[in-house]
Design a binder for these strands. Structure first.
Lengths: 344, 344
DNA sequence: TGTTAGCACTCAATTATTGCGAGTGCTAAT
DNA sequence: ATTAGCACTCGCAATAATTGAGTGCTAACA
């Protein structure tokens, strides 16, 4: 879909204006704002064209026009360019990260904090997942009686707790022994490939111990399959200030989204082409609750492998320029600091 | 403050009615509802008295009256009695707990779930704290380079993770040794009493190891001091349906409360007399954000010692009867199931 | 032929007007 | 002490009038 330069310009100004004010924009006000020296009448003609092409709609006859989702999509694809953030802001962000990157958890919540503050929307950050394939160490800790805690440590130095109840009592000594068995195994292969046969081949186990290992392995596998990566979110109330969310039902939707961490996590982690900044506008989102929102996400990496995702949820009338710039820069920062925290 | 029987009855009916309908209640409708065979005129006189005594207010001249906070307080103290829940509901709850009490985390979130569902308000549950005094085992797990995870296990079989960065690299072997040293120490005394002098007396340590122990202990102490007990909350959106929360600002307040977990946790854990069910109405709450809400809390115990708290946040026009009954029963259930999960 | 001024028209939003009804306080009768 | 009766109050909902930003169309113009 191609537009001539003037239509493009007009569309741009309309979108920018509407993003700022949330008010339908009319030909009169527009002719003042865009210095193209065109009269309102001409603009009206162009606007009529743009409406016919599906870029604009009128909330009611004889009101200004507002951009459609298609318009935002066009704007994002063809008009806007990701700007570099101002030097001052960049250094501010950088300093903030330096103060909060000694541990993984705080880094994640700080990221969410910064995101929501810089964009004035709701921020979501997905912590790195602990999965099957990069598990380098398992420590079994006796809790009480037949309850144990399994701590799984990944190659990158992340940890995940799994609490289970076993059929027999496990004391500290036994817990240590079980840990050793599993870790010995982990030297040669990955957890997901540990089968019953392999367990039975292990020499030094008593029948009771063998039985425990047989119980433990499926629990480990199962827990590592679930991608229950932690989700941090902030700035929920930021959106309350925008007029489109003065409706309590919209707010309900938003809260439902943020609370369904599982869904959110899957959605954000899903790859979509190779784009660094992914923009989903309104109904482009699969999730029913997100139909009235736009969401912009990005990912952070370690040695080229995707570790986690982060992004911003806001109205479809979102400041796509600014958010993209912010995400872009935060992405760099995260990549930088994550590689200090984790290692391959 | 004493009221004669009739005034008391009238006040009761007004409160009950207002709790149900959120509408100011007038003398006419009242005379029908309360079968005391009194005419509206008489009721009007009584109501005027009750207003003078501070139990009722009129939103505007010539409308019905609504109860004041003082009225709710009187109702809670002098009128209402905690009912036993219906048999059917009791068994329902009990069954539900049986299905969700194999682990501590799920038990907590299930409790929150049940609470919010039974009351239709917002539920909050505080998981047991892991503190200094009942720590029986510490397991140090090497994460990567100089980063380690310390798992603290309590007498009761709860665990807490503490992630720290140390000055030297710690491998699996060293982590084990450090764990042993600390656990050896724990046999005789509690963590909070471990001093520099005592560490230096330990024989088997190399200077490097000694240095690490010197670093680790303060981290442990500090982490166990913070009472960052986990907070589970559910049913945030339940309150949205009540007319008093159709205002976005009220909702903002609520979200702020629930998000400030630290504050919430302190508030709920604070003892207040020896009451089993604690009721705070509107401005009886210290927290500014809670001034428009009522909160009813209770605690669960293990061997007579308080483990955690749970409760419900709702409008001051809260169904105090029902919520109290529910909390009362849930408290018993929790005490029962917690003692299966944890042990002294 | 593209642009613009002018004009009649539309329609949401605001303000004013009215009527209704649930409620009150007061007084006089029971 | 209680109650019926009555005049009065005032929020609320419905209706009507007003305003104003915006449009589409037509005719004139460069």
């Amino acid at each position: 879909m191609e537009l001539n330069a003037r239509k493009k310009k007009i569309l741009e100004v309309i979108i920018r204006d509407y993003i700022n004010t949330a008010e339908p924009v009319g030909s009169r006000t527009l002719s003042k704002r865009c210095n193209l020296g065109i009269s309102p009448a001409t603009i009206r003609n162009e606007m009529a064209d743009l409406e016919e092409l599906g870029f604009l709609v009128q909330p009611h006859t004889s009101s200004g026009r507002i951009p459609t989702q298609q318009a935002y999509r066009y704007y994002v694809d063809e008009i806007m360019e990701i700007q570099k953030l101002e030097k001052m802001i960049r250094t501010d962000i950088h300093r903030g990260f330096l103060d909060h990157t000694t541990e993984l958890g705080p880094t994640m919540s700080h990221t969410a904090q910064v995101l929501s503050q810089l964009t004035n929307y709701t921020a979501v950050v997905l912590a790195p997942r602990v999965t099957n394939f990069n598990c380098k160490h398992v420590q079994i800790v006796s809790l009480i009686k037949n309850r144990v805690l399994m701590v799984v440590v990944t190659q990158e130095g992340m940890a995940k707790n799994i609490e289970v109840t076993l059929s027999q009592e496990v004391d500290t000594i036994l817990a240590l022994k079980l840990s050793n068995v599993i870790n010995g195994f982990l030297k040669n292969t990955v957890l997901s490939e540990m089968s019953s046969d392999l367990i039975d081949q292990i020499q030094e186990l008593s029948p009771a111990e063998s039985k425990l290992i047989h119980e433990i392995i499926p629990h480990l596998k199962k827990a590592l399959m679930e991608d229950a990566s932690e989700v941090h979110s902030t700035g929920l109330t930021n959106l309350f200030n925008y007029p489109e969310f003065s409706d309590v039902n919209k707010i309900k939707q938003l809260i439902n989204i943020v609370q369904e961490k599982q869904v959110l996590s899957e959605m954000m982690a899903s790859k979509d082409g190779n784009q660094v900044i992914r923009i989903k506008i309104g109904s482009e989102n699969d999730n029913e609750n997100l139909k009235d929102f736009s969401i912009i996400t990005s990912t952070y990496e370690l040695d080229g492998e995707m570790m986690g995702a982060f992004g911003v949820i806001g109205p479809t009338r979102m400041n796509y320029d600014n958010v993209s710039s912010v995400l872009n820069y935060i992405r760099n920062e995260l990549n930088l600091h994550i590689s200090n925290l984790l290692m391959k």
